[in-house]
Design a protein around this nucleic acid. Sequence first.
DNA 1: ACCCACATGTAATGTGTTACATGATTTT
DNA 2: AAAATCATGTAACACATTACATGTGGGT
Lengths: 192, 192
Amino acid sequence: MGYAAGVNEKESSSMSLKHALLTALSGKPQSGYDLSREIEGSIGFFWNASHQQIYQELAKLETQGWLGVREVAQAGKPDKKVYRVTAAGLRELKRWMTDDDPDLPPIKDGLMIKLFAGHLVDPDVIRSAIETQAARRQVRLNRFREIESRFFAGQTLSLERQYQYLGLRRGIRGEEAWLEWSKEALAIIQKK
Amino acid sequence: MGYAAGVNEKESSSMSLKHALLTALSGKPQSGYDLSREIEGSIGFFWNASHQQIYQELAKLETQGWLGVREVAQAGKPDKKVYRVTAAGLRELKRWMTDDDPDLPPIKDGLMIKLFAGHLVDPDVIRSAIETQAARRQVRLNRFREIESRFFAGQTLSLERQYQYLGLRRGIRGEEAWLEWSKEALAIIQKK
DNA sequence: ACCCACATGTAATGTGTTACATGATTTT
DNA sequence: AAAATCATGTAACACATTACATGTGGGT
């Protein structure tokens, strides 16, 4: 039988909007719409998804038995489908939490590609691309810091909130590091 | 004509392995195989792709006229297809470099999801997940630092190499920030 | 009138992964 | 003899985005 060896390719076990949704719903039962709102805040900073994707994924998770649904009528508003995590869903979430993902999360940063092709264009193009991103990152950092001082600083935190706070701290440090880098980068580019 | 407004959804103009490949090939013409090697190093740190995806994308780019191919016979080895960027391809790359991507790059970090669900499991599970990632990030940081001191430190750099160096600096600062965060996080978790 | 928030979806397309497939040469 | 490197690809599937679609009620 003739086929050679190069088979041990990647195996990212992550790939899981599923588990992000289970996590968000384990807090409190919610509708797809609610989730797509919430996911723009705390948890969604680390795992992004559009509302279409969320609706599809919720339907799958329900079929699979990890979620249950209940249709709730509302006065003056469309009905909503409120999802909750089942016992099987919770089991799956806990299982996933113990398995080790061998890869670091992949990065897809267009600005870095632009950097690597920077010599092909006027330095002003690169400078302005960096400055534009820096402005957006600064906005995000400010938002994070506000959340920190409003909801976390100087308060006694439950274990759950403590973990949330660590997530926020990760966001803060990430943006700070990016902004420091951008200063270094702009200083060097300016000198040309 | 009856349909309402909520239409102004996201519009990430990034999504571009295409441009990562154009960038890599603008340096020197290469085969898909060469690219899949190179992409594990410098540029690939910021834009990941498997060899299958690269082959498919190269074929598309050639059809589109942004790349040209030349089959090169080799002694004792399979033929290879060497791709180069065409004039149209270079035009497209430069065009892309000037357009503004309104979104910050999306993050998909499973560890952060685990954090948010941390209260559902024993703190040891979280602690060990963080430690495992920290070890991998430390390895990556060491590799970056070695590249820095071997190929960039104390040398006069061309514009092209200068930009590459800034990319590397971004990688270094990113990993440093992550590791500092992990110390903070572990210190807090340990106290429980 | 128009827009926004609420609320849920389908269809088509595009991007990315996993598994399968081949086959010569070089290293262990 | 087994395994790794070189080199390219197809097929099936899973994940994600864009565009389309509907309809109520409240604010400007």
